[in-house]
């Protein structure tokens, strides 16, 4: 759930007037953009030792090394994507917590739409079937109509 909200936070941080930033961060590093990017990367990368944590959450030695490495690469001016590619080359796609949009992951990404689509198709069928069957029972054939009319007439008299 947090991912999209995270984007929100970032957007917020970028759009907020500078007075909103807390000035008291004691070891405010010179390059806050690097830190911001690094943090985003930490969250999208898996700690390989304690596997179900992201790098951000992990205090494992390898994770600390990786974090250091990521910061360095970003400071060198590498983009987030380049850093990711570097790590994928060494550790495989397993390290990415956010799967790439590749053919292999196609079903993962279109799956939710397929599920919704199937649901909608079923609902549609359900309603149309209902209408068909209810139409059948609701309209009376001429003979019945005559009969009903007759009964009604009798009653009215």
């Amino acid at each position: 759930m947090i991912k999209l909200f995270k984007y929100a936070v970032i957007l917020f941080l970028c759009s907020a007037p500078s007075s909103l930033y807390s000035q008291n961060n004691t070891n405010l590093e010179s390059n806050s953009l690097v830190l911001q990017q690094a943090k985003e990367l930490y969250e999208e990368l898996r700690c390989l030792v304690c596997q179900n944590q992201s790098l951000l959450e992990s205090e494992a030695p390898l994770a600390l090394d990786l974090k250091e490495l990521i910061k360095e690469k970003l400071k060198e001016g590498k983009t987030k994507k380049e850093v990711k590619d570097f790590l994928v080359e060494r550790y495989g796609e397993f390290i990415l917590l956010l799967p790439t949009l590749s053919l292999q992951n196609l079903f993962l990404w279109i799956g939710p739409f397929i599920f919704l689509f199937i649901g909608i198709i079923f609902a549609y069928k359900f309603y149309t079937n209902f209408n068909r069957s209810s139409n059948k029972t609701k309209t009376l054939n001429p003979a019945e109509k005559k009969n009903v009319q007759k009964i009604l007439d009798e009653k009215l008299e």
Partner: peptide, 13 residues
């Protein structure tokens, strides 16, 4: 000593 070489090799433990 820094662990960088291991990262280059894709070592995780």
């Amino acid at each position: 000593s820094s662990g960088r070489i291991a990262i280059n090799l894709g070592v995780y433990g």
